[in-house]
């Protein structure tokens, strides 16, 4: 298990300064991505998945947003510290991104072929004609019918699924080492979702890139991901191998998430959802951020913040006191204290 590490994120914090205060949208995210692997990032809406992925490319709108701490090591070079010039060479070249919003992420008045070709010209210094040809080839690769014709069209002439294919073609144009896909399929209907997922896996095999796959659909994660990072309230709470995670979820939040999945084997009728609501990014509790919703919470959970720690199993990390040694010696919340 000593695969090459492509991307490592350490203690990433991205905060937004607004009139309401400071929103700690991403507040200490850590994860590791290995070569050729797919890492899924999952979590409820608003937990900071998109902001994390935008931070990786330093695309946070600033003001109000800012990366205030942490490292993003791409092949051991810290993206956070890069100069503009250097950063531009990484963007779209080594690290590229598919956005959550296929309808609005393409420039409405530039032919889609040109939008792909310009990336190729930029990073590979190909002449105009060759770059265009490559763009058409890419459109064919991502399964767009009659790519020659489509390349000349503007986004409004394409359906949502086609636009997402264009986005993928654009992201793959310079065979990136890492592809970040932020909910690439949520805006699409189910059959197209499946096709796009299939396509991405296919292309990964051909090109050998690593993928960060962001979603809140655990079913999709089970299908495509090797590793999973579960996010809650701006932090990673569990980070491990996907199979293990689905078999024995360690963090109470992950357990809750899995329970809310429709399970064919147990023939569940009613889906369980986790009760309570996510704390506001403007005002996190001092202790564990999940404490208010956690069925196992003890007093310590409200007083101290748990850290993301490796368990006895290698490559398994979890942010919960339950998996520390001292847990069993602590009394349950509400338990009477004998004098």
């Amino acid at each position: 298990m000593s695969k090459e590490v492509v991307l490592q994120v350490k203690n990433l914090k991205t905060h937004f300064t607004t009139s309401k205060g400071i929103a700690k949208a991403v507040d200490g995210v850590d994860f590791t991505l290995h070569k050729g692997e797919t890492l899924g990032i999952v979590g409820e809406s608003g937990c900071g998945k998109s902001i994390t992925s935008l931070s990786l490319l330093r695309l946070i709108p600033s003001p109000p947003g800012k990366i205030v701490a942490g490292e993003i090591l791409l092949n051991n070079k810290d993206i956070v510290k890069m100069k503009e010039e250097e950063l531009r060479k990484v963007r779209g070249n080594q690290l590229s991104m598919i956005f959550q919003e296929p309808m609005t992420s393409l420039n409405p008045i530039i032919p889609v072929g040109e939008q792909i070709a310009e990336t190729i010209r930029l990073h590979q210094r190909l002449p105009r004609k060759k770059a265009w040809q490559k763009a058409v080839d890419l459109l064919e690769l991502v399964g767009l019918p009659s790519p020659e014709k489509r390349a000349k069209q503007e986004p409004f002439q394409l359906s949502g699924g086609m636009r997402q294919r264009v986005m993928i073609a654009m992201a793959l144009a310079c065979t990136p080492e890492v592809l970040i896909a932020d909910e690439p399929t949520t805006a699409l209907d189910v059959t197209i979702q499946a096709q796009i997922l299939e396509l991405m896996k296919d292309l990964q095999r051909q090109i050998g890139m690593s993928i960060i796959f962001i979603t809140h659909d655990l079913g999709v994660v089970a299908e495509v991901c090797d590793q999973v990072a579960v996010m809650y309230a701006g932090q990673v709470v569990e980070h491990r191998n996907a199979k293990d995670l689905f078999k024995t979820p360690l963090h109470p939040y992950t357990q809750g998430l899995l329970k809310s999945l429709p399970n064919i084997h147990e023939n569940q009728e009613v889906l369980q959802t986790i009760e309570g609501s996510v704390p506001s990014p403007y005002d996190y509790p001092i202790g564990c951020r999940f404490a208010d919703r956690c069925p196992h919470a003890k007093e310590i959970c409200r007083e101290e913040a748990p850290e993301l720690l490796e368990t006895e199993n290698e490559n398994t990390k979890v942010r919960c006191f339950m998996h520390t040694e001292k847990w069993n010696s602590i009394r349950q919340e509400g338990e009477l204290v004998c004098p």
Binding site: L59, E84, R91, G92, N93, F99, N107, T119
Partner: peptide
């Protein structure tokens, strides 16, 4: 400048004046 497609353009590594 606040639109998604401008973010896409930046994500491609285009120079700011482009």
């Amino acid at each position: 400048i606040g639109q998604d497609y401008i973010r896409t353009a930046r994500a491609k590594g285009l120079k700011e004046h482009f």
